[in-house]
Design a binder for these strands. Sequence first.
RNA 1: GGGAGCGUAGCUCAAUUGGCAGAGCAAUGGACUCUUAAUCCAUAGGUUGAAGGUUCGAUUCCUUCCGCUCUCACCA
Length: 524
Amino acid sequence: MPGAMSDEGLIEQKIYTERAQKADAWRKQGINPYGNGFAAAHLAGDLLANHAGKSAQELDEQKPGPFTLAGRVVSLRDFGKAAFIVVQDRSGAIQVHVKKDALGDAAFAAFKLVDVADFVGVKGTVFKSKTGELTIAATELRPLTKALRPLPGKFSKGDDAEAKAWAEKQALADVEERYRRRYVDLLSNPGVRETFKKRTKLVQFIRHFLDERDFLEVETPMMHPLVSGAAARPFITHHNTLDLKLYMRIAPELYLKRLVVGGFDRVYEINRNFRNEGISTKHNPEFTMLEFYQAYATYEDLMDLTEELISQACVAVTGGSKVQYGPDVIDFKKGWPRIPMIEAIRQKVSELSEKDFGDPDKLKAVAKRRAEGEKEKTILDNMNVGELIGALFEQHVEGELVQPTFITQFPVETSPLARRNDANPAVTDRFELFCVRREIANAFSELNDPIDQEQRFRAQLDAKARGQEETMDYDADYIRALEHGLPPTAGEGIGIDRLAMLFTDAHSIRDVILFPLLKPQATK
RNA sequence: GGGAGCGUAGCUCAAUUGGCAGAGCAAUGGACUCUUAAUCCAUAGGUUGAAGGUUCGAUUCCUUCCGCUCUCACCA
């Protein structure tokens, strides 16, 4: 018996052993319990779509088929010399009627060793059972794979509210187990399959949307010699033959802008970023980011584009422009408010006048009132004006932004890669999109002045010298690229996982990532 | 790292004031050739996360540890 079972419960071991014995019995009958291929020409969903509407009489006369399909047995009702099973493939699930006289003694004896969770191949014509369900009358049934472990709970095809409630109660519920054994989660929880199909649909829609607008999809390095493109702690790795320290990408930004310099003036990339930071319901160490850059556009153009992209994506993925997210109904129809950051703060903090936003002491005093503990106060004490404005925004505004809202005009101190506003050099031509109290997108007119960029890189080095951990490295080659000329360009990043969360009413990022990072299980 | 909660059969969950650890489903044996969460009869399945303490007696109370979830902090 397999050693892997030694730490498991008696029942699980017993089921495992019994199923393994059935696999052996098949071998004695000349059936390979891990067979090789099966030419399934049809899908359960297609058969249902094409024939479920026909009457029993029509089907009796036409005898459509024979059809062949393959899938997992998710339900089995045995009547001795006959049985109904439900076979599930990627398209759906269809009932199969297995009768001893139709199959023959030998094949029926083999069928008797089929358990729920095994894979089978089936051939037969379709008919309506006495209760009116489209069913395959099996003339052949071949075991394809023996499952040694059972599925949790029990399969129900019922689609009324009561049946759904019952099915939910059957499903695997242990959160850790669901993430750790996603294959069981997908089999057990139909809603999980739907969530990940929606995620795929979202990514497909975004590609289509950008391709249609003449953006070129590219792939840039995931291993970087410098930390660039965002303020975050990186994962560090090493190349042996080059003896080179490398950082896993925290953002593709500087590579994509180099491509704009090179003449690809509309580019995008959908790929993973890696950040060596905390794990939470909103953060996974690797996450998927869309970044796109459009030359000759401004951040204001990108606000228009973002509204189009997300409102249309919402319809494509969910079928409508309104989405239920927890207790809130989010309306993604276009026409989202666009509020400069300082104005958004003033709406919440009435005592701050416009000129106070140049006064660090006043800002500090207001921010400290919401601060808890000495540590936080010390952090505020060391902040400059721009950082204080950012802190006030997080304290008073971010948690209030439920419907899609653009916040614009970020302080220059917190935006090292963004272009300064022409009218007010203290702020940048930048926006972030907020929805359900969190950031969804971040965009700005790119800084394309190499001298200004060089100074901002130096400011990052100073910050690092002061002990700030999340800073960017000085990227001399990027400065050189800017010296060749980056046309006026606007760029944006959208967190795909967080957008998928919105469209699927998922409240943990782990619910939209197939295999989220988990602490390895302790070996006993 | 702080705070809150949880951990009982393969799965989903019970267990009164501290008083014999239970149910449904799954499993096994049997009956059944139209079931839909099939039905009927029978059987088996437990180190109650771990260790210690209080007690005549602990799933229950206490301590420590382990694990997970949520939350705050950190962070896009």
